[in-house]
Amino acid sequence: MAIAQSSKARTPQRGPRSKGSGIGERALAKIFLTPSFTFMAVIALFPVIYAVWMSMYQITGFRQEFTGFGNYSQLLSDGGFYNAIRNTFVFTTVSVAFEFVIGLMFALIMNQAFRGQGITRAIILVPWVIPTAVAAQVWRYMFSDNPGFVNGLLGTSINWLNDPTWSMVGIITADVWKTAPFVALLLLAGLQTIPREYYEAAEVDGAGAWRRFWSITLPLLRPAIIVALLFRTVDALRMFDFAYVFAGYSNSLATLSVYTQRYLYAEPELGYANALSTATFIIVMIVGIFFIRLMGQQTVGSEKGKKK
């Protein structure tokens, strides 16, 4: 209220560079940003710093004992940690690769369709909206060899849930099922921004379908592809639900998130859990920032351009 009045009093233009704004708008901008920044600083940034601090302690119950980098040296010689890194990266690379290829195929199919596009666009949201933990249970039961739905379908007799390799195939399948449609949606939006004239012109020049795909579709889709890969990669790196529902804390599927969470209740060792969460945070952020730099000029540049 106070701001509104003070700015009213100063309505006459005084800002040297902006057209009709005065101190009111500048102050308002800061005030509008404050709640978001405070929230994220207290609930996201502070805990991360607190975790670094707490990772220097050995914590048992309410007793805290300073160990310096003890937890980190334990971490560096912990086979379970390396195993979690390996699981996380195998899961991420394979599932994102499949999600991208299948998502792109779906996007192209939907973009071609002249009929039924509306209904498909709606149905494609079904995997996205079903909670991951629920999807994980459904897939776990479909893979289980007792009723053996997947085995029945494929005519195989694989013990999907107890074999480490096959259960990894299982959670990758489940994740690809759930998120390939989401990738398709992102890529479809990108496809629809490509002007049709480009294809017509290429056709006049005698470019075949394959050539048009490589020379027009893929390059012009690049921004959408990078955004989709960014979201999917980061999301896959922090995956918890599928791995936990399929295998609990078992090392066969434990990702970094599962392995960290394990030291909360299953084997309460909070200092070590904090060291693990810090390590996970650093790993995910490094990969994410790599992607953001990749899209650097593209997104941020065009955002800036849009707002003059």
Binding site: G15, M40, V234, L237, R238, T260, A273, M285, G288, E303
Partner: peptide, 28 residues
């Protein structure tokens, strides 16, 4: 609104979307 460092704030928001929730679990 007129704001200094708009691009920086937007990039920060994008970086923040990548925050791994597990990093909150032990400290919170």
């Amino acid at each position: 609104l007129p704001l200094k460092g708009r691009a920086v704030i937007l990039t920060l928001a994008l970086v923040a979307t990548m925050f791994p929730p597990v990093a909150l679990v032990p400290p919170l």
